[in-house]
């Protein structure tokens, strides 16, 4: 399974960023072999509008099953993520990625 985390940093030691569209990085963890990939999303800070859809487009190239974030995406991005069949879990803002993963595994994150 591939789990995407909106992240403040570019590795597995980072904290989850509560935002979706304007999160600086997305860390994607493959739970089967514990490998990870990183999407650099720092350019989202340059978008006046529509940062959410643009981030969703980047994410679409990675075949993720689950997205773990803080507040949840705004309306435009939510529509796109629905098309990607990604389950979104929220409430992990500021948690360490590891802690967020544990919270997800113990069903204590809220489904968006």
């Amino acid at each position: 399974m591939k789990i995407a985390f909106t992240s403040k940093g570019n590795d597995l030691d980072a904290q989850v960023d509560a935002r979706f569209g304007r999160c600086p990085f997305i860390v994607i963890l493959n739970t089967d072999d514990k490998s990870f990939e990183v999407i650099d999303n720092q350019s989202s800070a340059d978008e006046a509008h529509g940062a959410g859809p643009k981030t969703a487009q980047k994410l679409s190239e990675y075949d993720c099953n689950v997205l773990i974030t803080g507040n949840g995406p705004g309306g435009n991005a939510a529509t796109l993520l629905e098309k990607l069949n990604i389950d979104i879990y929220i409430g992990a803002g500021d948690m360490l990625i590891d802690d967020a993963l544990n919270a997800f595994n113990s069903n204590s994150l809220k489904k968006f």
Partner: peptide, 22 residues
């Protein structure tokens, strides 16, 4: 997608998606 300066047109895999709000 590249002709839209407002991120209103997105390509997701084999689909073009319009975000009318943008």
């Amino acid at each position: 997608v590249s002709n839209c300066n407002f991120n209103a047109v997105t390509k997701l895999r084999n689909e073009i998606i319009i975000s009318p709000q943008l």
